[in-house]
Design a protein around this nucleic acid. Structure first.
Lengths: 206, 206
DNA sequence: TCCAACATGTAAGTGGTTACATGATTCC
DNA sequence: GGAATCATGTAACCACTTACATGTTGGA
């Protein structure tokens, strides 16, 4: 059983779903295409980890609703007991930042600004989601608790990356100024400010 | 050409390296095993993107030092101009957090505490690295600038995740208290505190 | 004495993506 | 009229991991 299999089990342990629903649900957990999900569901059903019910629909294609079996729940519970081990981040933005010295200042700034736009979009979507969740008063024992804290985690990290983007853009700004006022705001100074504040939305226009 | 190829080009654009060195260098950028790197280097050399020099060593195995060619630099430069597109995070910790409701409180807390230990280790290593880098006064036009800001990015995000871990552990704490003092510190309240402060190292023992 | 670091490579297998295939409904 | 959503599946291909293979030096 691979990790995707456990991700599927953990979603189905909350509620039965179709393969199609799983695909969108898994996006925040372990992104996978439908072409990987459907064959795996069949394999897991054959192993007795899942069971399914055929649902006929009008105006929509028919679907299969998968549920976790007792064997599936036992398998999942023994897996989640083991310590987490692998974390893989593959983001071509990181490579482009690494090679930023090959760019002129305008396109270097554009790289960061584009990231900012994307992050701001994500953050504003998350704000509404979190506000909705907060109204429901989710307790630590709720089925929704895991999803809620993951949502907040992603939100906090996105906001932190937004701060980082502003910090980088300010390094460009201050590098211009330091040609005039030598080293007034060095990278080191800005780094120390960063250590104490979260959101540097605007450091002013200098 | 795949993304790993561009990651290799961006490292080699800074300085020539052996495949062995690349493997460790790429860890922060686009992690890859040597079994993937060596054949790709050969393929890229055949395409004329790289060239290599055979270095004989005493007391150590011989090695090949790869350098980027003019064609390689042009290929890289046109790639970094394109907007960054894909970001994939696959972390089994997220799945285990999602399924946290299946755990008892002790092992749920342990999951978060183990993550904290790992993050604290990474952060303390990064602090020394950043301090070293700060002494060198890296400017925005330096070859080292990209690597420096990526290091800071990772550091800021790690610290933010540490804050999140403390926030989650405090949710467990306050859920005990709310049995006594109903809803004094709700998830919502703690969330609002979180919006304004970065590092909640200790919210006290209540 | 055994393990880590240095150094490069191949082969087999798994994981994941892209493309092929089909088809109704709803909204712009 | 075209795109998006719902809905499932297969086949070919590429990306990545694990295991196999070899050999030296220096430190615990």
């Amino acid at each position: 059983m691979n990790t995707l299999g456990y991700a599927i089990l953990s979603v189905l342990s909350k509620r039965p779903s179709s393969g199609y629903e799983l695909a969108s649900c898994l996006d925040m957990l372990w992104p996978a295409k439908h072409s990987q999900i459907y064959p795996l569901l069949t394999k897991m059903e054959q192993k007795g980890l899942l069971s399914y019910e055929h649902i006929e629909q009008i105006g929509k294609p028919n679907k299969k609703i998968y549920s976790i079996t007792e064997k599936g729940r036992i398998t999942l519970e023994s897996w989640i007991k083991e310590p987490a081990s692998n974390q893989i981040v593959r983001d071509d933005f990181l490579i482009k930042v690494y090679a930023i010295w090959l760019k002129d200042e305008e396109s270097a700034k554009k790289l960061i600004e584009d990231r900012l736009v994307k992050l701001n979009q994500q953050v504003s979507l998350q704000v509404t989601e979190i506000e909705k969740a907060n109204e429901e008063q989710i307790s630590t024992t709720s089925k929704q608790f895991g999803k809620y804290i993951l949502l907040c985690r992603s939100h906090f990290l996105n906001k932190e990356e937004i701060s980082w983007c502003h910090w980088v853009l300010n390094l460009f700004k201050s590098s211009h100024i330091s040609k005039l006022i030598l080293g007034l705001l060095s990278a080191n100074t800005l780094y120390k400010i960063m250590q104490n504040l979260t959101v540097i939305v605007e450091l002013g226009e200098f």
